[in-house]
Design a protein around this nucleic acid. Structure first.
Lengths: 343, 343
DNA sequence: CTCATTAATTTACGCGCGTTAAGTTTTTCA
DNA sequence: TGAAAAACTTAACGCGCGTAAATTAATGAG
């Protein structure tokens, strides 16, 4: 195939019979050169497999083609899935995605933004930790780097936001549960890490009141991202102490619900609707595992792909709109009720 | 804090009162300069927040301080977890980890290795796709870059391997199941993507024979990484067709077992041991979600942290051992039986 | 205090590519 | 066919840092 190794663009230009500046132009935009020279370059490219040195390329660019993707917790399949989707979009659009996870730790998130900055990314898609984020650090970062926030909305941070309509999510689940059985109590974490949780609580309260029921909230202690574990421990405790005031438990999110489901099983409570069942349990988010719990979890589905796609599109928009004062648009996707057997 | 922005090492050297080459030396190894000059540099570092341009730094190095981490499927919490752990080790050791996921797609794995190569990483930790990996591509890559394989053993690839002792895993589960009830049948995928699966099958066969039982294998159709879905669909079909020859189902891995568990529930089969239970189900790996299934899944635990730690240590070893012909050492960690309620 | 070490400094080159300016060739189209 | 436009070539500089050689300064044992 190739006779000798190509060491740099100079040599590659030589073997392709094109001058180096033109080759450089080609790599920055293949359409910017005449078709005939493009063909010659691409012919040489096949014969000699050469790739521009990525470090040398990025040294001179003020901005690279890198796109940072930051999620708060990669062990959560939701974020794994959404990260995956965004990665693909980036690659297909000719960017180099770099995936980071804060693993639920504030200091990690700060570190990530720090090292991201030195990668001179064209843009960043950031799902912040939320409550435990260092607001100042986020603000400073977003001031320098075009950033689209997703999943967790943080007031005043980022140039745009894409997430789900928590109000609508909870309206959907509360209305369904009230329509088909006892009005639900709301199970959530005492000090939720994620700002979505606060909006869901508010939505639960308002929806219950609108429907003429008295809202009842059960809170679980716990501050980390081990939601299933917390749901299991605290849910179990609540079952044992008969702390759930109704037979219907609406969990703030599916991961918590998965824990409560396990706790219910352990306590010998049959979960589901209809007679013979002791308790109904529902969640929100349509977590990838929710369809495989026993019983399968009734929930409200997030449109993963839509959030991922829209986030990326929004960033692209931002990028070629330049540093226009960007009318911080926020997109909130509605969810859909997914009726399964748990409620 | 800082008066003017520092643009490069030249300027930073000026404000710190040290020459640029010495500053450069400092950044490559803070211990290589006299304590007094180190103090002066670090004082300036606090006052002026400067960081060497990562691209310029890497341009001249033959090797960078980058370490690639490649997993086959990041939406699998096992890999998310192990990826997370390795990342930490890298950072703590002064390296820059970069996490990639092949998402189960051969072409992606090849692309990842391709772009990894251009990042000139000091080393790579690779959990290959396995059966669907492009062997030639792996071989070519590993010839150029010091690579430690983990999780999936591929004969002759990489300079070392760290994974689990599949033989021992299955011995443990089969012996336990035989000791406490009907000998298990083995539920697995027809064409498993992961080489561990083949070893587990072999271990099942040999262990059953050693114990004087006739092995019985039930295979599920399906070729992708949606193990839960496949387990649910094919397990459900097997239940409906009464294709499971015993009341004890040993699944090749937990994700498959989670699907079978859901299928059992759907078919009205109570899962667990003792009377009143129709079927026992067990798995392998101690998947993070296994303790939250209903009932909680009996399984054999992988030592995530040990695999992650040892993989990284092995790589470090490899790196400062230079290009010594490395006696391709393979480490196989034993598992521990985790008895829960499903079997 | 002297001499031998050890560490820092000065000077200078190179890495691989982006980019620009000036000159040359090719293409396009009237 | 000829001139303008477009694309290319040559030449050269700069990016920010690693690194080497030669020189000077600091350290420390005797």
């Amino acid at each position: 195939m190739d006779q000798r190794k190509i060491r740099n663009m100079e040599e590659f230009a030589a073997v392709s019979g094109i001058s180096r500046p033109t080759v450089s132009k080609y790599f920055n935009d293949p359409d910017s050169v005449r078709q005939s020279t493009r063909d010659r370059i691409e012919a040489a490219l096949e014969a000699y497999d050469y790739r521009p040195n990525i470090f040398a390329v990025n040294q001179n660019r003020r901005l690279t083609k890198n796109i940072g993707i930051v999620v708060p917790y990669l062990a959560d399949p939701f974020f794994a899935e959404i990260g995956r989707t965004i990665e693909r979009r980036c690659i297909d659009a000719g960017f180099s995605p770099i995936l980071f996870s804060s693993h639920g730790v504030t200091a990690y998130e700060i570190d990530i933004l720090e090292s991201l900055r030195s990668l001179k990314p064209a843009g960043v898609l950031l799902a912040p930790l939320g409550r435990t984020s260092d607001r100042a650090a986020l603000e400073k970062f977003c001031a320098d780097v075009p950033t689209v926030l997703f999943d967790s909305f943080v007031e005043g941070i980022g140039r745009a936001f894409v997430g789900s309509n928590n109000q609508q999510f909870v309206e959907l689940s509360v209305e369904y549960l009230c329509r088909t059985g006892e009005p639900p109590c709301f199970f959530e974490m005492e000090t939720p890490v994620n700002p979505n949780a606060r909006r869901r609580r508010a939505a639960y309260l308002s929806t219950m009141e609108r429907l003429g029921h008295s809202p009842q909230i059960v809170q679980a202690k716990g501050k980390n991202w081990d939601f299933e574990k917390i749901g299991y421990a605290e849910g179990g405790r609540a079952f044992a102490e008969r702390a759930f005031p109704t037979n219907t438990i609406l969990c703030s999110n599916d991961r918590l619900a998965i824990g409560v489901l396990a706790a219910a099983y352990k306590n010998g409570l049959r979960v589901g609707r209809g007679h013979g069942h002791a308790v109904r349990i529902a969640g929100h988010d349509d977590h990838p595992f929710s369809r495989f719990t026993s019983p399968p979890l009734t929930t409200v589905s997030q449109d993963y792909a839509a959030i991922a796609d829209r986030s990326f599109e929004t960033l692209l928009h931002l990028l070629d709109a330049g540093d226009g004062v960007g009318d911080h648009d926020a997109t909130f996707f509605d969810g859909q009720l997914v009726m399964r057997d748990s409620a």
